[in-house]
Amino acid sequence: MIIMFACVKDEPFKGFDGIQLPEDHGILEVDFELPNYKLIQDGIRRADLAVCNTMYEMNKGVFFYHSNVSDAKQVYQIVLPEGKYFYQAVITCSLGGDSCIMGGFPYGQGRMKYAFDEVLIKAGEKTRSLPVFQ
């Protein structure tokens, strides 16, 4: 029992999904689900997912981390030192003409819609967040 316990203690801390985490880091997992606009579902695209330290930086558009977002990927994991963060998720409508507005997206082509949240990252833990677009 003592030998087994020693072995477990000596192993480096392992993160989630194969990510090797440094000791004072945690994971921010954002479930970046696209809102449902039935008539223009193919036109709604992920544009950005960015992280900053304060609300002031978010208002200024100053982010220290941007993710490579894709229309084919919904869940994003970002490794961060423990602490408080703000993230911003951005979507856009890429359909031409008035299709975006007629389909329920409040803006025309190329205009953005934003969602943000405050998250607390704890060492060795995964913090999950779901951005909600109004």
């Binding site: 950005d48 229309d71 084919a72 890429s94 190329g110």
Partner: peptide, 15 residues
């Protein structure tokens, strides 16, 4: 081709 794609507001990150 899914990615890369030209989407308004989307930028590629080299990191």
């Amino acid at each position: 081709l899914i990615d890369p794609a030209i989407v308004p507001g989307r930028k590629m990150v080299i990191d």
